[in-house]
Nucleic acid binder design. Structure first.
Length: 461
DNA sequence: AAAGTTTGCAACCGCTTCCCA
DNA sequence: ATGGGAAGCGGTTGCAAACTT
């Protein structure tokens, strides 16, 4: 991205004398470039690394003539040029791993890379930060209840939700990570790894000590299937924040491909007059529709504004109806329940759970992936989830606050325990084969520490 | 069609940790 | 034990693309 393009960086920035991390006395007065790398620079660096391997990054600049500091070379190599790198969006399985790892270790991006071969710390960090922003925007918790349960039952503490997220927003959105496998980004530096078939999601990989026999195991797609769960403290609903109450709920009406008229709840964005759709396209699918966007439809949109009365709650799950009615029956007892009831009624009356029903008709949530590839199917998914929630809606009205991990009690991350590492290495061994990465000794699997890499490519100094 | 806004990501920055003399 | 350089790490910035109005 941005290779050779214009940028805001001073490409002729002279850093020879200043200590900016790329400076130091060894630049020899060379004017070092900053900003995006060019293809030519990439080629030079890649060739050099293939020949000499990693090590002594400052020597790279000297030996190649690149006008880049060693630090920049290291970053470029590690994040973009290494042949073992994967490209493209994270797979659902990888996402799940990241979430769990973050719950375990906090912002230890580099350490996380040892569990996600082929992924870089920067990539993981960006993913997580994006996820934080998205879920904050949507009023959703960072961690699914499964992880909360695992950590609460195991005595481990969760990385806290972003500090800006009020605890009343802590709810897991069951649709996160249920989107299709990612598409790979066009990268000249690598070829995308083979994707698991959307219809055959990768098997559950984790055999984590975090998972107790009593704790719900993760479904492959991170789907929170509440159908069979009994009411517990883990089931809770998003409590609408008071500021949001100042905004009327709006429903956007659109026509489906088949001509069915649908509604989608528009969620007011805090501090904005804009509304966002409640469906959570939580998965960072490359072609993901942003949270405030709708799947493609024709221009027959109109909006219906509903002014909720009373102390309405609505679920984190998104509910829109695939029906012909022009109105939703809001009774003021809680929007979520209203919607659930509505969804149930629609389910009963319109048989929308037909052949394409994944949550109802499939034995597992992961089965949904194959039928959920098209974003236009989302409305049905929404209503199905809504229907499922109804089973225990009355018993789960309370919010659950997440515990704050000890390593981040002050908002700062800290070291990871050796116990965690033990689990991590076990996890790594199990995950790697499924991620199509060679993790055999001497393989090219990413390691945040350069030890294994150094073993492959002894340093040049 | 154009302007404005949002989003994702590459790259930079500065602090910390590691290593070695 | 310690000081300096190199490498690693996490946070932040700013741009281009995507999207909305």
């Amino acid at each position: 991205m941005m290779l050779g393009g214009t940028n805001g960086y001073n490409n002729d920035h002279h850093v020879g004398a200043q200590n900016n991390g790329c400076g130091g006395p060894n630049n020899g007065g060379v004017t070092l470039k900053k900003g995006p790398w060019t293809a030519a620079e990439d080629a030079i660096l890649a060739e050099y690394m293939r020949t000499y391997g990693e090590g002594n990054w400052n020597a790279v600049q000297k030996n190649t003539g690149l006008a880049r500091c060693g630090k920049s070379c290291r970053l470029r190599w590690a994040n973009h040029l290494r042949p073992s790198l994967k490209k493209g969006a994270f797979w659902p399985e990888e996402e799940r791993i990241i979430v769990e790892l973050h719950a375990t270790m906090g912002n230890k991006w580099a350490r996380m890379t040892t569990r996600l071969p082929g992924r870089t710390d920067n990539e993981i960090k960006n993913f997580w930060n994006t996820r934080v922003k998205r879920r904050q925007r949507q009023g959703l918790p960072l961690y699914p209840p499964e992880i909360q349960a695992l950590h609460s039952s195991s005595g481990q503490r969760l990385q806290p939700v972003h500090r800006l997220i009020p605890t009343q927003f802590l709810i897991y959105d069951p649709q996160s990570s249920t989107t299709p496998p990612p598409v790979h980004s066009p990268s000249p530096a690598s070829t995308p790894p083979p994707h698991p078939s959307p219809s055959t999601p990768p098997p559950l990989l984790l055999n984590s000590p975090l998972q107790s026999p009593h704790a719900p195991s993760f479904s492959t797609s991170f789907t929170s299937d509440t159908t069979n769960t009994t009411p517990s403290s883990l089931d809770f609903y998003f409590q609408r924040s008071s500021p949001s109450l100042q905004h009327p709920l709006r429903y956007k009406r659109f026509k489906h491909d088949g001509g069915h008229e649908n509604f989608m709840i528009l969620q007011p964005r805090l501090g904005s007059t804009q509304f966002m759709s409640t469906p959570d396209f939580g998965y960072p699918f490359k072609n993901e529709l942003p949270s405030n966007q709708f799947f493609a439809h024709d221009g027959n949109n109109s909006e219906v504004t509903l002014d909720p009365k009373g102390d309405n709650n609505y679920g984190s799950s998104d509910h829109n109806s695939d029906h012909h009615s022009s109105s939703l029956n809001i009774n003021g007892n809680g929007l979520l329940e209203d919607l659930l009831n509505e969804a149930q009624g629609l389910t009963d009356s319109h048989e929308i759970m037909g052949g394409q029903s994944c949550l109802v008709g499939s034995s597992s949530s992961s089965d949904c992936l194959s039928s959920d590839l098209n974003a236009k199917e989302e409305p049905k998914q929404e209503i199905m989830n809504a229907t499922k929630h109804e089973d225990n809606s009355n018993a789960n009205q309370s919010s659950v606050a997440m515990t704050v991990p000890e390593w981040n009690i002050d908002g700062q991350s800290s070291a990871v325990t050796d116990e965690n590492l033990g689990f991590e290495f076990e996890l790594h061994d199990q995950i790697a084969p499924l991620l199509h990465v060679n993790t055999a000794p001497g393989g090219l699997g990413r390691s945040s520490s350069s030890h294994s890499w150094d073993h492959i490519f002894p340093g040049i100094c």
